[in-house]
Every structure is written in structure tokens, then in C-alpha cells.
């Protein structure tokens, strides 16, 4: 037996450390926030510097409905975790399905928005600085939504076929943290692009 540095502890206090999943996700969120910050800075820096249109004021509409969908999906994913924690697997499936649905509506809204921007207004990523920064910022966020949706759908599948149980709560919670982050980013993007930027 290799003798290790064991010193009998005086007080036999419980030694509890944070969950590594949560800490890891928190780190990832910090790193991702830094990426988004740079894209937001670029958006703001180039705002209004275009020599030619279209400008945000001319072509952007407030995506209110889809935004509400995305934000409320934060609530549903939270409820899913809570349901799983209490062992109510059917409720969990239901809430997960709702989350996936709401997220998909948001993505559909973005797709529709881009379609009209490209084919009605003729704005592509090559058109001008607004196109460059708009598509990259919103696209980066949409990519994150897509990844989140893929993982949520996977969770939904496992929940439906019954292989997810209360002992997986921790993992689902980590996933929900990611989803909350994606929503929080949307609040920032929405404010910058659709409110301040117009």
C-alpha cells in the first residue's frame, strides 16, 4: 500500500465540493459569452457606418412572437428538470417536448426572417457591413440554439423510451443551464439588434 499523506482529521466535517458538471458548464458559458461579446462589439462598432443600404431600420421587424417562444422555453426546461427530480417521468417528457417545440418555432421564425431578408430585401452577408455583422451575430446564436435543440431532442428520446430516471437529474440540469444561457444571449442580441440598433 502506498502510504499517502494521511493525517487524522480532527473534526470529521463532511467534505462537499461543487458538482463538476455545473462548474464545467459555467466555464463553458463564460467562454461562450466572451465569443458573443466580440460579435456584439463588432455589430455595434459597424452600426450605421454603411455607405449603402439596406439599413436595419428599413428591413428589420421585431420578432416578438418567436422571442417570447424562446424565452418561455427557459421556463419549460426548468419545469422538466423539476419534474425529473421528483421522479415524474411523464411530466418530464411533456415539458421537454414543449421546450423542443418552442425552440423549433424560434428557429423557424429566424429561417423565415432570413428568407424574406434575402429574397425580398436583397440583404446577404456580402451586401454591406450590416449584412456581415447581422448574419454572423444572429447566425452564431442560431447555431447555439440548434445545438441545444439537438441535445434536448436526444434527452426527449431517452425520456420517452424510459431510460431517463431521477438519477440523471444532474445531467439534465447541466443541459438546462446551457439552454438558459442561450436564452440570455438572445435577450442581449434582441436588445442590441432589434431595439437599440434600429
Amino acid at each position: 500500500m502506498s502510504q499517502t499523506a494521511v493525517i487524522p482529521q480532527t473534526a470529521n466535517e463532511a467534505w462537499i465540493l461543487p458538482s463538476r458538471g455545473v462548474v464545467g458548464m459555467a466555464c463553458l458559458i463564460v467562454a461562450e459569452s466572451a465569443i458573443f461579446t466580440i460579435f456584439v462589439v463588432a455589430y455595434l462598432y459597424y452600426l450605421g457606418r454603411d455607405q449603402r443600404g439596406p439599413t436595419p431600420r428599413q428591413v428589420l421587424d421585431l420578432p416578438l412572437f418567436t422571442s417570447i417562444c424562446l424565452l418561455s422555453s427557459s421556463l419549460t426546461v426548468h419545469l422538466a428538470v423539476a419534474a425529473l427530480h421528483r421522479g415524474r417521468r411523464h411530466a418530464c417528457s411533456l415539458w421537454l417536448a414543449a421546450t423542443v417545440l418552442l425552440g423549433s418555432i424560434f428557429l423557424g421564425g429566424t429561417a423565415h426572417e432570413w428568407y424574406t431578408l434575402i429574397y425580398r430585401d436583397g440583404l446577404t452577408i456580402q451586401t454591406n457591413l450590416f449584412g456581415t455583422t447581422f448574419y454572423s451575430l444572429v447566425g452564431l446564436h442560431a447555431t447555439h440554439v440548434l445545438v441545444g435543440l439537438a441535445m434536448l431532442s436526444l434527452a426527449l428520446v431517452f425520456s420517452l423510451n424510459g431510460s431517463m430516471s431521477a438519477k440523471h437529474t444532474g445531467r439534465l440540469e447541466v443541459l438546462s443551464l446551457y439552454w438558459h444561457f442561450v436564452d440570455a444571449v438572445w435577450v442581449v442580441v434582441f436588445t442590441v439588434v432589434y431595439v437599440l440598433g434600429r
Binding site: 465569443i35 457606418r49 454591406n128 457591413l129
Partner: peptide, 27 residues
């Protein structure tokens, strides 16, 4: 992460023709 973001922008410039650092188009 900021470096990653900047590199993504550079890739976009070079591959799909955006104008982040394209001084000709106001970048």
C-alpha cells in the same frame, strides 16, 4: 474565446465574402 471569434470573422471574410476586416468595403 475572443481570438476564436476573430478567427471566425476572418474565415467568414475569406470564405463567404463578408466585410469584417475588408477595408475596401468600410471594414
Amino acid at each position: 474565446s475572443p481570438l476564436t471569434a476573430a478567427q471566425i470573422m476572418l474565415m467568414l471574410d475569406r470564405y463567404v465574402g463578408s466585410h469584417f476586416f475588408d477595408t475596401q468595403a468600410g471594414g
